[in-house]
């Protein structure tokens, strides 16, 4: 019991001496704290002469600033959790010794702390290869396999001859609309449509400049409706209407004279009559001999394509053959 008591006393003494030591330190530190300490321990002093106390200067208490997060980061941490989306650069979150800025005379570039230049430039810290892989894995369940039989471009061109072009605009505005996004362009090859001679001629007249003679591609551009859907529908309507209209023969189309023809046709012209007249010279037979089709094509070529060496030679050959002249 006695031993216990002495131990307690000793302990108390030690603690009290420690407290006094601390107090000494405090006493030396500031005058204000000394007065506080005195207030605590001794009786209050009656202050008869009102001594003007010095106005205490308020100390601004600053909270301890946390050390940068990078110092506590594990080496194998999940970076996508740290930097999940697009964000301005923050030096305390990026454990890279980055520097940016121009300095003269070979001085080191400004460090990443308090560096506004690093905050300005767009960064791709949210698009690291693991992050992209992770996001691709996440959206994989929404994907469907590529349809069979459409492996090559030639195959899908055969099944889907019409190509639809439209533009999406990504911009930094409160609105997502862009007036140019309504424009729709559909293209297809004229060879994908089936025509007879009259229909093709009429179709080309209807579409006018929308048909490119050199490439054989038909293009419809629509932008007169306010939305893309309406413009797409309108473009398809135009194509359908032109195609079906081209098969209709109006009564006034029969009045097309030789002067209106855009191409020379052997069947409709004097050349056929002259050739037949020569072939059937003085013949009494009921069956009249017609000019051969190869002669007809050579005449058409000569007039439609113009006189060149090949066409003239071909024409000469055909004429000699028709008249049965051996040179």
């Amino acid at each position: 019991m006695a031993a216990n008591l002495t131990r307690l006393l000793e302990h108390k003494l030690q603690t009290s001496s420690a407290v006094t030591a601390q107090r000494c330190v405090r006493l030396f530190s500031t005058q204000q704290q000394q007065s506080e300490v005195n207030d605590d321990e001794e009786f209050r002093v009656l202050n008869l002469r009102t001594v003007k106390q010095q106005a205490r200067r308020r100390e601004i208490k600053k909270d301890a600033v946390q050390p940068p997060r990078t110092s506590r980061m594990a080496v194998d941490q999940d970076w996508t959790a740290v930097w999940s989306g697009p964000r301005s650069f923050h030096p305390a979150s990026v454990p890279l010794p980055l520097r940016q800025g121009y300095t003269e005379r070979g001085a080191a570039a400004p460090s990443k702390y308090a560096n506004a230049e690093l905050m300005k430039i767009p960064n791709f810290l949210h698009l690291t290869p693991p992050a992209i892989r992770q996001q691709c894995e996440a959206i994989k369940k929404f994907c469907t396999p590529w349809p069979k039989g459409l492996e090559t471009e030639a195959k899908w061109k055969r099944h889907f001859p019409i190509e639809v072009l439209s533009t999406d605009y990504c911009h930094s505005l409160p609105t997502i609309r862009h007036p140019e996004a309504r424009r729709v362009t559909i293209t297809l090859k004229l060879s994908d449509l089936q025509f007879d001679a009259h229909a093709k001629d009429k179709f080309l007249r209807l579409v006018g400049e929308r048909y490119n003679q050199e490439t054989g591609v038909l293009t419809f551009v629509t932008d007169r409706c306010p939305t893309r859907k309406q413009n797409y529908d309108y473009a398809l309507y135009l194509l359908t209407a032109c195609y079906h209209e081209s098969f209709v023969t109006e009564p006034w189309e029969d009045t097309k004279s030789e002067a209106d023809m855009e191409e020379y046709h052997f069947e409709r012209n004097q050349a056929k009559k002259s050739a037949e007249a020569i072939l059937n010279w003085n013949s009494k037979a009921e069956q009249k001999v017609a000019a051969s089709p190869s002669y007809a094509t050579s005449v058409e070529q000569l007039i439609n394509e113009g006189e060149n060496e090949y066409n003239l030679a071909k024409y000469k050959e055909e004429v000699l053959k028709m008249l049965k002249i051996t040179v």
Binding site: G101, Y102, N115, A116, E117, K120, H171, S172
Partner: peptide, 29 residues
């Protein structure tokens, strides 16, 4: 500051723009 130390003709060379948007592109809204 670094921004003030570089005059405006260094924008795009030594320092970068303070506003980033698509409105400054041609024919933007």
């Amino acid at each position: 500051t670094y921004e003030m130390a570089n005059p405006p003709h260094f924008i795009g060379h030594r320092k970068s723009w303070n506003s980033w948007n698509t409105s400054t592109l041609k024919d933007s809204l």
